[in-house]
Write a protein that binds this DNA or RNA. Sequence first.
DNA 1: TTAATAAAAGACTAAAAACTCTTTTATTTT
DNA 2: AAAATAAAAGAGTTTTTAGTCTTTTATTAA
Lengths: 145, 145
Amino acid sequence: MGVFSKTCEYAIRSVFFIAHRTASGNRVGIKEIANGIDSPEHFLAKILQDLSRRGIVQSAKGPNGGFYIDERGLKRPLSEVVEAVDGNSIFTGCGLGLAYCSETNPCPLHNEFKAIRNQLKDLLEQTTIADFSESLNLGITKLRK
Amino acid sequence: MGVFSKTCEYAIRSVFFIAHRTASGNRVGIKEIANGIDSPEHFLAKILQDLSRRGIVQSAKGPNGGFYIDERGLKRPLSEVVEAVDGNSIFTGCGLGLAYCSETNPCPLHNEFKAIRNQLKDLLEQTTIADFSESLNLGITKLRK
DNA sequence: TTAATAAAAGACTAAAAACTCTTTTATTTT
DNA sequence: AAAATAAAAGAGTTTTTAGTCTTTTATTAA
Ligand code: FES
Ligand code: FES
């Protein structure tokens, strides 16, 4: 089990993939995305429908249709993608699964765990989708295999 | 979805609970543990059977039986409990779920994610089960509610 | 040596997550 | 207007995780 759900992993990877293609002004179809990020096509379709409803990605039907991300979308932090899919429990939840995680009712891991959790939060909040386009363009980072 | 599976959360909490009770030389029954950490009794039984087989906790049947943790067990790092239940994917897995996470084939989050992942790894490797007994004794930290 | 106790084991059910397949709707091109 | 294209929506199945219930085995105490 990873930090994010499978659904969330696909969401992030697809968003990076779309952002990368959108940079050159193109729209990209679900088949190409699914193939590009190595995910099940119809499952990814559901995820993108959701992200589309939430305005994180845009879509167009018909010939030359497909998914893309507008200017505003590119500036969104990754945390919004994660929250849209997995909710905010990774940012706020207790490492030991206690119902109420707080300073006054801490579990044994509270302080240390909170620090790590906050770093993940900061990472996802401070980096926008656009931030990754360049490294993808340079071919330094990969989204499949 | 938390960082650990539900099973793993129960495992950690129960181990803390048992360690705490063992400190006073007692054995503690499954009912009391389940109640103390707020987990389903029979589900926890499965988990403890597993931890027992792996030597992380000890158990005794019959009257005055129950679970306890010996000297060696108390000195084990938390990472062993986590690995026993969830495997080592939290310590080694890719944040975006790529099959091979490596320096030469990094995903966009690789460097930042690795740093956070390693902190979690260090935290769990460097703290032993015994390390928490005191804070539990002092009543500072809680395992349920 | 029998009764009581408590974990171990086995065989389930329930819920959630992941994934698939089919039909519908919107858009564009001819 | 008709045909082609591509996402949206709906209705499933499969797999995994979580949780329950019952029976068996081992140990101790009366
Ligand atoms: S109480 Fe567990 S992380 Fe805060
Ligand atoms: S490739 Fe994703 S964390 Fe290393």
